[in-house]
Design a protein around this nucleic acid. Structure first.
Lengths: 232, 232
DNA sequence: CAGTGGTCTAGACCACGGT
DNA sequence: CCGTGGTCTAGACCACTGT
């Protein structure tokens, strides 16, 4: 009779079952990796991998010396994929379209310079563009780009490729912020999206940096009815 | 002279630098784990850990036999924490308040039964409640609960503890859906949130299951001005 | 100080899936 | 087929931190 290999997934599932069944109650210290490895008859590394996954998922709190505790309130995390708009439209089975409305250098407005941490009034590249799905307005992109941090953007043909996509491909970033909100359509936005003024729009604002250098700040206003879905 | 230990973080950073610098261009096959382990002078497991992290973060596509390729369009992922509303309010430095508006058993409306995969008209527990921050309306919670899947909920005092929090603590779920959108406030919602009718509201809808059993479906409408922030 | 989690190593076996 | 990533093992050292 051969021993079936003990997988880290099996240990993860067993631990999760103990958490859910309250055999390991919230706040409680669970056995050490060494003890669990003995119990499950496997190497400590296997237990470690399983518990690390559960800690990343928010079910456990792990600290050296203090041991591993069951999280008091399991904070679930949803992961949102932030795809290029062209892919997002294509994934919905629609034909993607793109129209550049305007682009040019302008002094940064206060709300942009403050978010990016730049001097107010510094010249930035401003791009206004409309993304379409099956010919209908899908999202309005209002973007400010720090051209010095995105070499080559001046030469890019932003009527042919969206700034969104050009940046993803050519200007890597190390970190960024994302803010989701709802806003009423102002007159200009309503005209571009061809929706009633005051309509409730889903808005995503992003700002990205490469280390200390601000790259871009963008506000995407989606046409009424937009839904951003994910799984928990 | 002792060799400094090679950490998986160092390998991850080096690999990321090669991706960003295009030394490993998008779509390109990178060296195998074995080759990289030889290059970095470490064990293959260390390389494996580093590349696994980059794959989870969306920078690499890994497939057995086919090897590891640099992702063509690095799909960045934002992770949203889904805290209990009480914690969310407290984290903003505001005093949390809660008011139960109504609760009782009602036949499930079509949009709820279809989302959860239940028979239409099946009796469910319906809870309407208002969450407050510093006394001001923060979010309206409109929830339907499959009481059979949440034993004990009938006995819970939902005027004292929100259904939100009771469920987090007492009814574990295995998976769920989350949909974010924007909607105009209808008359009833506007009255409860004390905002103008038609105001743009941020809406989060969740449905959760424990394996095949539907637990709850909830729609949270946030007061105007709400912003959901995260980092990339 | 001592026990915990975090990590690295060297080796091994295996599942998968291009060729 | 056979090279790739995925995983497990047994052992070791170390970083951190509660007591």
């Amino acid at each position: 009779m051969l021993e079936a290999p003990v997988t880290w997934q099996a240990i993860r599932d067993e631990a999760l079952a103990r958490i859910r069944s309250r055999r390991w109650p919230p706040g409680e210290l669970i056995p050490s990796e060494t003890d669990l490895a003995r119990e499950f008859g496997c190497a400590r590394a296997t237990v470690s991998r399983a518990l690390r996954e559960l800690a990343e998922a928010g079910y456990l709190d792990r600290r050296r010396r203090a041991g591993t505790r069951v999280a008091l309130t399991p904070v679930r995390k949803a992961t949102l994929k932030i795809p290029v708009l062209r892919h997002e439209v294509a994934a919905r089975g629609a034909r993607y379209g793109y129209a550049l409305i305007s682009s040019g250098e302008k002094p940064a407005p206060l709300h942009v310079s403050s978010v990016l941490g730049l001097e107010a009034g510094m010249p930035l590249l401003h791009v206004l563009a409309l993304h379409l799905a099956d010919g209908a307005p899908y999202a309005l992109e209002d973007r400010w780009i720090n051209a010095m941090a995105a070499p080559g953007i001046e030469a890019a043909d932003l009527a042919a490729i969206s700034a969104n996509e050009w940046l993803v491909r050519n200007a890597p970033y190390s970190h960024g912020d994302l803010v989701l909100s709802a806003a009423a359509a102002d007159a200009e936005t309503a005209a571009i999206l061809r929706c009633p003024e005051g309509a409730a729009l889903f808005v995503a604002e992003r700002a990205t940096w490469l280390h200390d250098t601000p790259i871009t700040s963008v506000r995407q206003s989606y046409s009424p009815g937009y839904r951003l879905a994910t799984t928990l």
